[in-house]
Write a protein that binds this DNA or RNA. Structure first.
Lengths: 241, 241
DNA sequence: CGTCAATTTGATTAAATTCAATTTTCGTGG
DNA sequence: CCACGAAAATTGAATTTAATCAAATTGACG
């Protein structure tokens, strides 16, 4: 089964497709060492303190990363979708990874990743993408108001998933609230406002949000300065192939 | 001149000391390819869109990383101190690096870093440290109130610099405000409150903040679950030496 | 159909921002 | 060395935003 190839086509702007840009031979090696696993809703993939000896590629479903304060306050660090690669950490993980839906992922032992220079480069690229992404989130939390956080979150996700007609939102409001530094009520109010404006439709039974006016969604999010186009085939990857 | 060795001893918990854990031979190689540069207050090291062909080790002084929205709102992503390594990015930088004080740093061409597997590992370790750090900041912005952000920021910095009697704060209030997602007035009020409690002293002329009661500072910051001790000599570095 | 959980909506409150002065600090030049 | 002006920091209201409190509504599921 060509699982890893499927992953490659899963979504255009995934937070790192491990197998992207790999030549057939390297892809074959990767396929040989990757193990499959299936998850039910709420399953924990790893938690803080767990030994970080694998990286994970999300094939189907959705996952979130989160941390807690000891008093229970929670921050959802990010939502992961098919194609995303995660689990980067030193000896131990510092956050928790939870399946939002029934999911399937492939686990790759980090030891195996050190052998192939192409993969090492690929991983480096992915972890840099992660850093940029996290900085985006920092800006969102630090300098945007509630309505902006919601529209920016939605428009970023919409763009990342390739501007589809409907956005999968497999998480609950409370998860979005804990991601955006807001309360459930505020998230609900902002979604209601967007619905009233005709920008989004009502969330369907199967947790899919119709995007009625993507352009307006992007217009409502605070604009960032144009970013140089990141080319997956360029940069440090070139000199390794 | 043993600049990179100096860097190594600069501070205990730096956001990555590139030369840490290097054997003499590798250190020699690194020293051979590193270039020095000196910066004045406000100097830009790189900006968004600039080609990311070097990584930087801060030897003396202080630097901040920041991003902007087009309407001018700013987020200070992090403050860097001697020993910190920065500049990780794909082909282009996505944020701006500005010298807070007269500084000196060493520039290392990324091309040179790919040769030594020990350095590659070291860089991987550092960029993971970065990710953890950024996630800490996400939690701070997303789930802490103003007073907590300030005490958590100060106590983290205090710990990172080795619990000194006085903390160097070479940035202006506006920079701290833009880092913590607050306004200058709020930052000022919180510092005043801590001063009234006798936890900190008045900021001295040379931008040094006396820490009168570090234990109280840490007690006021919202506690995080205990984190597994990260050992610089352990983890993935072991299998490369 | 009834129950429980999640969401939505409204009213009130608390927190931080904004606005508005002052005060302090710092650099410059007399 | 001191005076002056500009910039930064402090402090005090007033205002705004989002949180909190409190129902009411919707929806999933047995």
């Amino acid at each position: 089964m060509l699982a890893l190839v499927e992953v490659c086509h899963a979504n255009v702007e995934a937070k790192g497709r491990l197998c992207a840009c790999l030549k057939p031979r390297a892809l074959g090696r990767l396929r040989a060492i990757a193990a499959d696993s299936r998850l039910e809703v709420g399953d924990k993939i790893f938690g803080p303190g767990d030994r970080a000896d694998h990286v994970y590629g999300l094939r189907q479903g959705a996952v979130m990363l989160q941390t807690h304060l000891t008093d229970g306050r929670r921050q959802v660090l990010s939502f992961l979708f098919p194609g995303d690669t995660f689990g980067f950490a030193d000896s131990a993980h510092h956050c928790e990874a939870i399946a939002l839906t029934r999911s399937s992922l492939c686990e790759i032992p980090v030891s195996a990743l050190n052998d192939d220079p192409l993969l090492v480069n690929r991983l480096r690229h992915i972890s840099r993408t992660w850093l940029v992404d996290t900085h985006d989130q920092t800006l969102r939390l630090g300098r945007m108001r509630a309505a902006e956080r919601v529209t920016d979150f939605l428009s970023a996700l919409w763009t990342r998933l390739g501007s589809p007609d409907a956005l999968p939102l497999p998480m609950r409001w409370i998860d979005i609230a804990d991601h955006l530094g807001l309360r459930i009520e505020t998230v609900s109010r902002e979604f209601s406002a967007l619905r009233r404006l005709g920008i989004i439709g009502p969330l369907s039974h199967d947790c899919v949000l119709p995007i009625r006016d993507g352009a307006a969604l992007i217009r409502l999010a605070p604009p960032r300065p144009p970013r140089a186009a990141a080319n997956c085939h360029g940069g440090e990857l070139a000199d390794a192939s």
